[in-house]
């Protein structure tokens, strides 16, 4: 009792400090807060048709019994004609979207490249976990991709982990708080890419300039066909070899999604400069680094292609806030 009375201040303050730390931990990592619901995307040709003809039922795709994969059809208004699609384990082509997957082995690392050619910039999209914008609103990449009816998807910038940095998705501005020293990838409505600094460009102005997506992670890997990161420039955290996710544009409506495995004996992982060198080798004009580590996931036609891992011991997808995807 005497001891307790003597150390009353220390005991009470320790309890207070511990309680605050628990609260702030829950606030950062656990407590889910939805700030806005994303507008529902019209993902299927059938939906529009069904609505027009008064049918109540609508699905995002029909099942192909021979391959067990979903069939994706063109959005109404883009093309009235339904094209025959060719689907294989590593490729997809329906006339509007062409995807070819290739696996590379460089820098002691497994690197997966999805080469994408689109007939319209509208097919390059993003989607939120649970179709909602918020903090700690997460789901695994494959689940978000399935909900969005995506053919191909990679993890996005995990905007929910930060409280600053622009968030513009599918033409809607969700967050306009600029972060210092933050360079973003802007995807415009014509499908072109741009790299901007948040300190120099306002989110609203970007939207007015035709920005459809703004991804706030970085850094930019390749700008105007030249590598924009070097080993000397890299901060300590970027030197480490890790799983990585990157997006790049080669030509008009010709893109690449790149995901590398890492943190395992089979695949070491890439540093930022190695990733930039690899992207430059793919002849990209602009390339941008997205959230990596345990988040790095490549999804294609109902399957996860790479080996996502957080600690190298267990292979499994990490829940993320958002994805970048290809779909109707």
């Amino acid at each position: 009792m005497k001891f307790f009375r003597r150390h009353l201040w220390a005991v009470l303050y320790s309890v207070l400090l511990a309680a605050f730390t628990v609260y702030i931990s829950l606030d950062t990592f656990v407590i889910s807060r939805v700030y806005a619901e994303a507008p529902q995307a019209d993902t299927s040709y059938e939906n529009a048709e069904a609505e027009e003809s008064g049918e109540a039922e609508g699905t995002s795709g029909e099942s192909d019994s021979s391959s067990g994969r979903k069939k994706h059809k063109k959005k109404s208004g883009v093309s009235e004609e339904e094209e025959t699609e060719t689907v294989a384990d590593s490729s997809y082509n329906d006339g509007g979207i062409s995807i070819t997957l290739t696996e590379y082995r460089e820098y002691d690392t497994a690197i997966y490249v999805a080469d994408i050619v689109l007939s319209s910039a509208e097919y390059l999209k993003t989607a939120f976990a649970q179709n909602a914008y918020g903090r700690n609103v997460t789901a695994i990449t494959s689940e978000i991709a399935e909900d969005a009816g995506a053919i191909l998807a990679i993890n996005g910038d995990y905007y929910g982990a930060r409280q600053q940095g622009y968030v513009i998705r599918n033409g809607v501005l969700y967050r306009d708080t600029a972060a210092s020293d933050q360079e973003d990838l802007v995807i415009y409505d014509d499908g072109t890419f741009g790299i901007i600094s948040e300190e120099e460009s306002a989110a609203q102005a970007l939207l007015e300039d035709g920005a459809v997506q703004v991804l706030s992670f970085g850094p930019a890997l390749v700008v105007d066909g030249a590598i924009s990161v070097s080993e000397g420039d890299e901060v300590g955290k970027a030197k480490a070899s890790n799983p990585r996710t990157a997006i790049g544009v080669i030509d008009d409506l010709h893109y690449v999604f790149v995901v590398s495995d890492g943190r395992t004996e089979e695949s070491e992982g890439l540093s930022l400069s190695e990733l930039a060198e690899f992207m430059e080798g793919l002849d990209v004009q602009t390339a941008y680094n997205l959230d990596g580590g345990g988040s790095s996931t490549l999804y294609f036609n109902g399957e996860v292609i790479n080996q996502p891992t957080t600690n190298g011991k267990k292979i499994g997808e990490r829940s993320v806030s958002d994805i970048v995807c290809i779909g109707y």
Partner: peptide, 19 residues
């Protein structure tokens, strides 16, 4: 405690203004 917690957040890649 604040320094350790800030370190945890930085390594995870997140922020919280309450720090």
């Amino acid at each position: 405690v604040g320094s350790i917690f800030q370190g945890v957040l930085e390594i995870y890649g997140t922020t919280n203004p309450l720090t």
